[in-house]
């Protein structure tokens, strides 16, 4: 029993990282922008939050957790949205190829993040790990509900970003399904010429969706740094791996952020299962870690076979729009 709870807890923590990534990417892709820069944006969000918290903690005499949280949140959002803005400018205004731009952004983001991650370690004296313990504790603070035995342990023992991820995913889903602006945004992603003819500002919608989406994705990186690794940094590429999983989750959830919630936890369970399955060797352990991708492929196969139109990607995903094109 404790093992199962431990697995689920690990899955939820893991899932939260990719849920942020996927929710942001769903919002972005619904506008027709295929931003493969998610891992890079998560990197940017993570490192910016860490840098912000680091400078706050090293300059303040007596750092407060909530100020650290606020500073790192703002830095993280700003950096991630800046990443989204770069992508938007290149693909929307200059109509550069989306795949190339996105992949470049991933390389750029991981480079920037690992460069500053290394610099921070140097600034901190160059010995071992840097740590922003105060800020991180602010992120990991739990309410009294966490003490409610098994239930509390399973449901209430996480930092606030875990719940924020769920709220944002539901909010994005509601926005897309039930509001006028959401309908307009989906129209932009499905058929920009139609949206344009209906008087919708295609460029504005794409910019907003991409930048806000990037901001949400960036929170995944922040959560990873502050909560998952408890305020430390390592140049091991794990954010990038999670970023690609987030992109896979978008497909798995069939571009519906409410479905991404349980999808992300399922990915978490599949990912951590190897710890709890007895008798795994080094080789079969790696096979086990592949499960989230295998499941995504299976979902893709099932979805393409069922051919339900609503489950397909936005029709103009990956295409630039130019009104006077003939």
């Amino acid at each position: 029993m404790t093992q199962i709870i431990a697995l689920f807890s690990a899955a939820i923590v893991f899932g939260t990282v990719i849920l942020f990534g996927a929710t942001g990417e769903i919002l972005t892709e619904k506008s027709g922008n295929l931003n493969l820069g998610v891992p890079g944006i998560m990197y940017l969000g993570g490192i910016a939050g860490l840098v912000g918290a680091f400078f706050y903690e090293s300059s303040a005499a007596d750092p407060l957790p909530w100020v650290g949280v606020a500073v790192s949140l703002i830095c993280s959002l700003a950096a991630a949205m800046l990443g989204g803005l770069i992508y938007s400018f290149l693909t929307i205004t200059l109509r550069a190829n989306q795949n190339v731009t996105g992949l470049t952004l991933t390389i750029f983001g991981s480079g920037v993040a690992n460069f500053f991650g290394g610099s921070l370690q140097k600034l901190a004296g160059g010995v071992g790990q840097i740590s922003v313990a105060t800020t991180s504790s602010g992120y990991r603070e739990v309410t009294g509900l966490a003490d409610l035995g098994t239930v509390g342990n399973l449901l209430f023992s996480y930092g606030f970003l875990t719940y924020a991820a769920i709220v944002i995913a539901i909010a994005v889903s509601y926005f897309l399904k039930h509001t006028r602006s959401g309908l307009n945004l989906r129209a932009v992603g499905e058929n920009p010429a139609t949206a344009d003819a209906a008087g919708i500002n295609v460029t504005k919608n794409k910019y907003l969706a991409t930048c806000i989406g990037a901001g949400i994705s960036g929170l995944g990186g922040l959560y990873f740094v502050m909560d998952y690794t408890e305020g430390t940094w390592s140049n091991d590429g794990s954010i990038e791996r999670l970023g690609w999983l987030a992109v896979a989750l978008v497909i798995f959830a069939m571009w519906k952020s409410d479905k991404a919630i349980w999808g992300s936890y399922l990915f978490g369970v599949l990912f951590w299962m190897f710890l709890y399955l007895p008798g795994l060797t080094r080789a079969s352990l790696e096979l086990c870690k592949m499960l989230p991708y295998v499941v995504t492929i299976i979902v893709l196969i099932v979805v393409s076979m069922r051919k339900k139109r609503e489950n397909q990607p936005p029709a103009s995903l990956g295409l630039a729009y130019f009104r006077e094109e003939r």
Binding site: L183, R186, A187, E190, N191, T194, A198, I200, R309, A315
Partner: peptide
């Protein structure tokens, strides 16, 4: 927009 209903297309924008 193909995946929208008639009503959704009409109210668009």
């Amino acid at each position: 927009v193909d995946v929208f209903t008639a009503a959704e297309n009409i109210v668009l924008g």
